[in-house]
């Protein structure tokens, strides 16, 4: 109960929403400028389109993670969920094109079910989500290993892979538009609509101050559970794109949960909930990918990526605690 006393009262929707996007936009623009200085044709349509296409999965995961984090929780299970989905898809499709759509529906249901389980365990059994989703992460890793005897079987049909791999060719001006980018735009639009709806506003209120939200008649547990389901669904869509991009692999989702969380905090969403926008989270993911591309162009070892992610999380936390003290 002390939690409630220390925190400020409910978030006023709209307050500092566009304002909070400015820092991340500034960082993104700065990185893009640095990138074009080094690699002038990076912003040329073919290169940009391919960059956006392959960044789509992490941006989707960041959007999913946003809903959970803004509601004051974490979802660490998304990386292993992506791996599980890709391995399951390969085994079920087994290179048989006609199974593509049924398997896609199954993956979405699977993602939603894992999210539902995360949400129910966290809200009904009152297990901290950090532990719940860490447990789910381990359960999925183990289950996939057991089910596949330690090595992926089967294969993904080209019909399934095209979503993550192919593009509309010969588009005027842009050259080619990856399907993944279109999927991303649709999901991003839906996510943005959702955050403007009553549900979205309630979610932020729940993260900002669950006690007040509950006293104002919000069904906090259902709202939080729905956030986990959204995260599971986003992992399913990301898995479809990643499996398509690179084919079946046991490492398909490795480390993605950290990438998504880093992206979300980079996008100005407060860890602990109650502040931030889904557009910010997605821009955070785009910025993170841009940063990694920049590091690549400057010849910085890829091994530093996890270090950079860790530093961003720490820095974001430091900045946000300084902010909340100064308020």
């Amino acid at each position: 109960m002390r939690i409630a006393e220390r925190r400020r009262l409910p978030v006023r929707p709209g307050r500092s929403r566009s304002g909070s996007l400015l820092p991340i936009l500034a960082i993104l623009v700065a990185l893009l400028v640095a990138l074009t200085l080094r690699q002038p044709d990076f912003l040329s349509p073919p290169s940009l389109m391919s960059f956006l296409g392959r960044s789509a999965p992490i941006i989707l995961l960041a959007a999913g993670q946003y809903f959970v984090i803004v509601a004051g929780e974490f979802d660490l299970s998304v990386g292993s969920l992506v791996t599980a989905q890709v391995v399951v898809a390969a085994r079920l499709i087994d290179s048989e094109p006609s199974r593509t759509w049924p398997v896609i529906l199954l993956l979405l249901a699977f993602g939603a079910a894992v999210g539902l389980a995360n949400g129910l365990i966290t809200t009904r059994l009152r297990v901290p989500s950090f532990i719940t989703t860490l447990g789910m992460y381990l359960i999925l890793v183990g289950a996939v290993y057991l089910w596949s005897d330690g090595a992926p079987k089967g294969g993904l049909a080209e019909e399934f892979r095209r979503f993550g791999r192919r593009a509309f060719e010969d588009v005027p001006l842009l050259g080619r538009i990856p399907y993944a980018l279109l999927v991303l735009l649709v999901v991003a639009g839906l996510a943005a609509l959702l955050t403007r709806s009553d549900f979205g506003q309630t979610l932020v209120a729940v993260g900002g101050n669950p006690r007040t939200a509950e006293l104002s008649g919000v069904r906090v547990r259902s709202v939080k559970t729905a956030a986990f389901v959204l995260s599971g669904l986003s992992a399913a869509v990301a898995a479809i794109l990643i499996g398509g991009y690179s084919g079946v692999s046991f490492q398909a989702g490795a480390g993605l949960e950290f990438g998504a969380i880093t992206a979300v905090v980079l996008g100005g969403v407060a860890l602990g909930g109650g502040r931030g926008s889904v557009v910010g989270a997605m821009l955070g993911a785009l910025t993170l990918e841009t940063l990694f591309t920049l590091m690549n162009f400057y010849g910085v070892s890829g091994a530093l990526r996890s270090t950079v992610q860790g530093a961003i999380i720490l820095l974001a936390l430091a900045v946000s605690s300084v902010r909340s003290v100064s308020r």
Binding site: I3, R7, F130, L271, R305, S306, G310, S321
Partner: peptide, 29 residues
């Protein structure tokens, strides 16, 4: 209280990030 929980969680997260991604630390010419 809340921020200390968040700090704890983030500390664990960073530690996990370090081991889970398992990036090679060898020299990369």
């Amino acid at each position: 209280m809340r921020s200390s929980i968040a700090a704890l969680a983030v500390g664990a997260l960073v530690a996990l990030a370090g081991c889970a991604t398992d990036e090679p630390t060898g020299t990369t010419p």
